[in-house]
Nucleic acid binder design. Structure first.
Lengths: 190, 190
DNA sequence: TAAGTAACCAAGCAAGCGCTAGTGTAAATG
DNA sequence: CATTTACACTAGCGCTTGCTTGGTTACTTA
């Protein structure tokens, strides 16, 4: 059953589940499909995960933890100006968004399928991540780099960034960093 | 069966369906739930709609048609500057987004559940809507109101606007127009 | 070498799914 | 008055769902 472990096997199964959840949506993904993708039979799945819900929670937790880690690293290695930190956060956001694209798409669009217990637990992770954004945006506002309402600016920026998963093509001419820089340039007061 | 009619009865059923699709998601909404919400038995549902897919298509078509109508009206009654048209489009977008919030949430987050035929048909409507945005943004770029890549700017703006359905509280202190104005202010080059 | 454990499988259950068939009835239409 | 149309009903078919059961296999450790 392995309630909260992170064996390599389970990590790999989680990765495959994320892929299927994106392709089909959580509800339409059956345990039989998941098992087939993993090369096992559907019964065996329940050795690794308590139930289907736990697979969803594992996928979302994985993505959110990675986002937190990358954002922290980005800010730590960037003690510069508020403008530099704004750039760094935007880049970090898109970096993790496309490095773990499947997990993040699931987190963004299948969150509501979580049962209340899992949702409550994962909300804390997400809140911690958004709090980091809040600080960076506060500093940018304080320095006059951008103008507007603290809350609205945060939501608009995160909305524009998150929505990229719906249209960004990694095989196109632009890198995620290009997107981040262009968005920051667009909102900076000049 | 009523393949493509728009009787008042059917419109009301579509509205109720949109509400349930938002609450539960399309896949988890059963025909029995839909029927109960409509005050009829599940079998009777198939007198109004050919199948469950058609209900989804009706919901999305309703929302998209309204968006098109409102945007056209907004631009027609606003032959002013590019800046005024930008404001008008942003306001129109949020106006329809929250006037028909359920339908638009379904359109934004359940689009992939459409079968290919319905998706192809509705894509044209959506493309027509996005083309209107494209023109307004082109004009704003030409006049130097905003700067950046035509494609990216469009995506960022629509992303920020669409994402509002995930956090906007109509009982809060802000009106949709407030949001639209604040977003436009944020991206205008000053 | 014996015990323990992680990983897996075949089979299947109870519940729920979308949808169909066939029927009844009241109002609109010729 | 006869017919059609719109809308609703009951009953259930055929299938899929998440999950369980009872057991086997392969590897690690004492």
């Amino acid at each position: 059953m392995n309630v909260m472990n992170a064996s390599p096997r389970r990590k790999e199964l989680t990765r495959l589940a994320a892929q299927l959840f994106v392709q089909e949506g959580f509800d339409r993904t059956t345990v039989r499909m998941l098992a087939q993708e993993m090369g096992i039979k559907s019964g065996s799945l329940f050795h690794h995960f308590k139930d289907k819900q736990e697979i969803l929670a594992a996928v979302i937790e994985e993505g959110t933890q990675n986002a937190l880690g990358i954002a922290k690293a980005a800010l730590q290695s960037c003690p510069g100006s508020a403008e530099a930190r704004l750039h760094a956060m935007a880049r970090a956001h898109l970096e993790t968004l496309f490095a773990d694209r499947n997990a993040h798409v699931v987190a963004l669009f299948e969150w509501r399928r979580l049962d209340p217990a899992a949702s409550a637990h994962l909300s804390h992770l997400r809140d911690a991540y958004e709090a980091m954004w809040g600080e960076v945006i506060d500093d940018a506002l304080a320095e006059g780099l951008i103008h507007g309402d603290r809350f609205l600016v945060s939501r608009f920026i995160l909305g524009a960034l998150n929505w990229t998963v719906r249209w960004y093509d990694p095989n196109g001419p632009r890198t995620p960093d290009d997107l981040a820089d262009e968005l920051v340039a667009m909102i900076l007061s000049r």
